[in-house]
């Protein structure tokens, strides 16, 4: 088990952590999730049939770990909101100002794009991270997501469109505040 762990860690850990942290935007949470990924990988290594590459397999597990986390969060939030009838307030609980220092020292444009990623859907965010932050090919992305290449292209197109719109809205909001 140790050798296998070492191998995965050396080859993919950096990219794996990058993917998770850009998905969940929280360092300590990403650290927990990365553990979950390795645990699942170690437990299911026997079932790895070699049809896909090790990298594809690992990132596909990572994506499912992230999706499971979002689902749990959604369920918790729904229960919470039903109980207290907070309606929209529940959506606002997340701390919008929380930004890792690596991002905080960057220019405004990078900070805006980082924040705008939050507003894309989980699928769109996954595609943007794989394609442009990690520089994977459409084929590789399609394999990880178990999609057709055309679906990756469609989702990428929608993600770019959504990102542009969100950035424009953010700038409009900022402009309004400055005018006021």
């Amino acid at each position: 088990m140790r050798t296998f762990f070492d191998e995965l860690y050396e080859n993919y850990h950096h990219d794996l952590f990058q993917f998770l942290i850009y998905m969940v935007k929280d360092r300590s949470l990403a650290e927990d999730l990365v553990q979950d990924v390795y645990v699942r990988v170690m437990k299911s290594y026997d079932s790895f049939n070699g049809k896909s590459s090790e990298k594809t397999w690992l990132f596909s597990i990572a994506r499912h770990v992230a999706i499971d986390y979002f689902r749990k969060q959604k369920r918790k939030r729904n229960r919470f909101m039903e109980f207290f009838d907070w309606t929209e307030k529940g959506e606002q609980i997340k701390d919008q100002n929380k930004m890792p220092e690596e991002i905080a020292v960057q220019n405004d444009e990078i900070q805006q794009v980082y924040q705008a990623l939050d507003k894309c859907t989980v699928d769109q965010r996954s595609v943007l991270i794989f394609r442009f932050i990690q520089g994977m090919s459409i084929k590789e992305t399609a394999e990880i997501l178990s999609w057709s290449e055309s679906k990756v292209k469609t989702t990428q197109h929608r993600a770019m469109k959504a990102l542009k719109m969100i950035l424009e809205e953010m700038e409009e909001g900022r402009g309004d505040r400055e005018e006021a």
Partner: peptide, 28 residues
């Protein structure tokens, strides 16, 4: 937008490899 996405900084895991292995193996 692609350019800015590509410029997003790299963020490293601060837990050491050894610590991570201990946590993972204990759970496995």
């Amino acid at each position: 937008i692609k350019k800015v996405l590509g410029e997003l900084p790299s963020m490293d895991d601060r837990q050491s490899k050894e610590m991570l292995y201990q946590k993972v193996s204990s759970r496995v």
